[in-house]
Design a protein around this nucleic acid. Structure first.
Lengths: 228, 228
DNA sequence: GGGAAATTTAACAGTAATGTCACAAATTGA
DNA sequence: TCAATTTGTGACATTACTGTTAAATTTCCC
């Protein structure tokens, strides 16, 4: 799955430049004209990074950042702020609100890409777009899974579920958290559905003796733990 | 423990400015004139972040960064590169080598501090929420309990009960208080039930000689006290 | 030492949580 | 369009947890 970036920018011209630059570098891009629209987009799919203009009609960029930080689902989401040159005072304000980096307009595409890359590397997004543990290897680019270098077949939902779990090894997720991250907040599905998908994942992993990596945390939900 | 920052810079003037700026902001500062000296300093104490000049006599900054990334101990160490203005091409080179951020000279102290702060905030993640005492360790992230690094099995209610007690060591709780905190105010259960769960916890801890940490306070309730 | 009060302990049965399966609706791809 | 795959759900099975009770034990005070 390609790295997805959400752009929140009201000026069409700048937005298009950003989209062009990012698409060319292989990112998946989602656009939002306002902070409000951005929140909706996030509900339907969580991006890997969000690029926000400081000045926006309605809720401004800093306020948006604060709201995202408050929400457990988005608290860790890397946020890059776009500011006009000469707003240095505002920059510091942004950092205080939990911004991860900022870029001044006009920006050089090369610098933009370099900063995003550095930030994504830091933010727990694995290098080379590979997630590996216990012989299981998710290739985020080609959407493929191999176990001990042998490719296996898996459905999209199972893939996302496994990805979320493997990106946060050892962390116990509640069913509702998994629903938020895998299915998105917009759709309503039963919590028990998670169980069924965990069962399906375990069946897939079983022939390799790896079903034990998907552990039940009674009273809470599930957890991925690599085994030796 | 104050956050420690290692500065690798050969030009004395710039180094002193950096030291001054960082010290004033409450950081602990370690200096190195060359990459080779930096590696020695890192061996003697791992800093929280490293600030490296790109141009250095001997091994340069990019090479140093690469070496640090290769070593498991320092692979995650945040690295900030100092570059002279106009070395943009070099900047990208640096990012490729795993740099987390860069700052162009001459730099504004405010910007320097803001960038470091943002980077440190991010690299502090993910927080390890741990409660530890007497060899018992609750990992609030994974909902795991280990005693002397050995994982033990425990049920949800016992877990919550132990958590409440260990969060407030030495504090004696009445049974009704424990009921409120562990079971919630809504449900009604007998006070004796607390006793039964304390018994179950003690049974779990007994093989490790830690059952004495759960002390009865006669006439009141129970208390967790760490033993040596 | 005796007796009352408080706590410990074991056993048990009900309940809640999770695992599993099959099916129908939705989606996808040829 | 049709077949194959994927997906969510309800039903039932299985497991493990929980609260209660009552008897045994300890503690405390006279």
């Amino acid at each position: 799955m390609p790295t997805s970036i959400l752009i929140v920018e009201d000026e069409q011209e700048i937005r298009e430049l950003l989209v062009f630059t990012l698409l060319r570098d292989g990112y998946e891009v989602v656009e939002a004209e306002t902070a409000e629209i951005a929140l909706e987009k996030i509900d339907s799919r969580l991006p890997d990074l969000i690029l926000v203009d400081w000045m926006l009609p309605g809720m401004d960029g800093v306020e948006l950042a604060k709201r995202l930080r408050r929400d457990e689902l988005t608290a860790e989401l890397p946020i890059v702020m776009l500011t006009a040159r000469g707003e240095e005072g505002d920059k510091l304000l942004s950092f205080a609100g939990g911004i991860d980096d900022y870029i001044t307009k006009p920006f050089s595409p090369r610098e933009l890409l370099a900063r995003l890359k550095a930030l994504l590397r830091r933010s727990g997004r694995p290098k080379n777009n590979l997630i590996q543990a216990s012989g299981i290897c998710l290739d985020l680019n080609s959407y493929r899974i191999t176990i001990n270098d042998q490719e296996i077949q898996i459905s999209p939902t199972e893939y996302k579920l496994l990805e979320v779990l493997m990106r946060n090894p050892n962390r116990a997720f509640e069913r509702s958290q998994l629903l938020d991250r895998v299915w998105g907040r917009k759709v309503y599905v039963e919590e028990r559905t998670v169980d069924v998908h965990m069962l399906r994942l375990r069946k897939i992993l079983k022939p390799y003796g790896l079903d034990a990596t998907l552990q039940t945390v009674r009273g809470i939900g599930y957890r991925f733990t690599s085994i030796t």
